[in-house]
Write a protein that binds this DNA or RNA. Structure first.
Lengths: 219, 219
DNA sequence: CGAGATTATGGCAGTAGCTGACAATTGACA
DNA sequence: TGTCAATTGTCAGCTACTGCCATAATCTCG
């Protein structure tokens, strides 16, 4: 039962079975990311990942629908983390402000979310790999577009609007997402140095949203 | 030689070999899109497409790197078409205005670009399929992100800026692209009825870019 | 505690996407 | 017409991924 599993996850002791599953999953992620970092995404086979995690190849596909998914597993956690951060923003904050603050708030605790599964540095390498591997980047963009849907939903809820009738939540989130992708790409090209740099980059680019839309750029 | 091929393409008679290649390619696209419409993307195999187009499966992969590519072939043409439309916009137009006008101008002639290869209605069905098939949609988003890069380049050129130093071109294009994706999705969900509807939708949503970024949404 | 219901895992066979290598065919061009 | 280059077909092979069934591990409840 997924629901019960999800609820008991953090509350009571999840039971041996659940703990074992989590360990297997984490082990698969770690093994995969390490192998990817070592030999590249395409040159790593699922069989190798399974072997490194000491499970059968068939089991791998019971945890991840495909090879992409294990590469993007941490992104998944981070996206959920971000969603939570947004929901915790005070209702008084303006939409765009809330989005921006949620990003920053979420980055403060992001390293903990990551390090619960893999070393931070490995995750950074993985992010660069995602940005530079077409197949992974495509899947990444797809997930982001689904996140944007949920973001728009949440933004609309905050503002007491209906996503179906008012275009502003979707438009805002689309623009916001665009900026995030641009900064993400830039950051990855610069080597994913520090979270500080990403923070500054994002601040600067988000601030340019208004000016970029201005009729005239002479300034 | 790609360059020579590209140049002679529309000028002199391209020669039998080139003509044959184009026919094979178009035939593959038509066969693929028809089969996709008939039995769905995943349930259509490359072997079937090749057989319908009367070539060997191996030849299919000489024209398209993978199965996704043939499904997105027309999008490819349309993106190139859009790029051209943007380049033809008068330099006096403001960045965002130029982007919007390029879209509309490009749609006026889009049907001709499409009908040179496949019936318009088949292309509409294909677009809906792209939006509703995760794997295709992911690939689609990836291509769009590459288009955005070129768009930013062109916008920067028009404004006499350097993409590397001024964030505005990229930010603007990212926001613009976000709106286009939102309208595209909406339009596909409504059944890709008419280009008119898409036009109205786009106009309305583009106009919301400014308001959506506003601090306060009470209005 | 122990029997029986659940659930996770492994093994295997098979499909489909995709590639490299080589041979055969076809168009280009002097 | 004959030579050269480009296109195509064939074939063997790898890898991602799935369905099926048997087995083994955990859980539940009397």
């Amino acid at each position: 039962m997924r629901t019960i599993e999800g609820v008991t996850d953090r509350a009571a002791s999840p039971g041996l079975r659940e703990r074992k599953k989590r360990r297997t999953r984490d082990s698969l992620i770690r093994s995969a990311l390490e192998l990817f970092a070592l030999k590249g995404y395409e040159r790593t086979t699922v069989d190798e990942i399974a072997e490194a995690a000491d499970v059968s190849p068939r089991t791998f596909f019971r945890y991840f629908a495909n090879k992409e998914e294990v590469a993007l597993a941490m992104q998944d956690s981070l996206e959920a983390h971000f969603l939570t951060a947004l929901r915790e923003r005070p209702a008084a904050e303006a939409p765009l402000t809330a989005l921006g603050n949620a990003v920053f708030a979420c980055w403060d605790t992001a390293s903990q979310v990551i390090e619960a599964v893999v070393p931070l540095e490995l995750h950074m390498r993985t992010y660069r790999m995602i940005e530079s591997t077409p197949q992974l980047f495509a899947a990444h963009l797809h997930r982001l577009s689904e996140v944007e849907d949920r973001l728009a939903q949440e933004i609309a809820r905050r503002a007491g609007l209906d996503v179906r009738t008012d275009p502003r939540p979707q438009v805002l989130v689309a623009a916001f997402g665009g900026v995030m992708r641009v900064t993400g790409k830039l950051w990855s090209r610069r080597g994913c140095a520090s979270l500080e740099e990403l923070r500054d980059l994002t601040t600067a680019y988000l601030a340019q949203l208004g000016p970029a839309l201005a009729e005239d750029w002479r300034s």
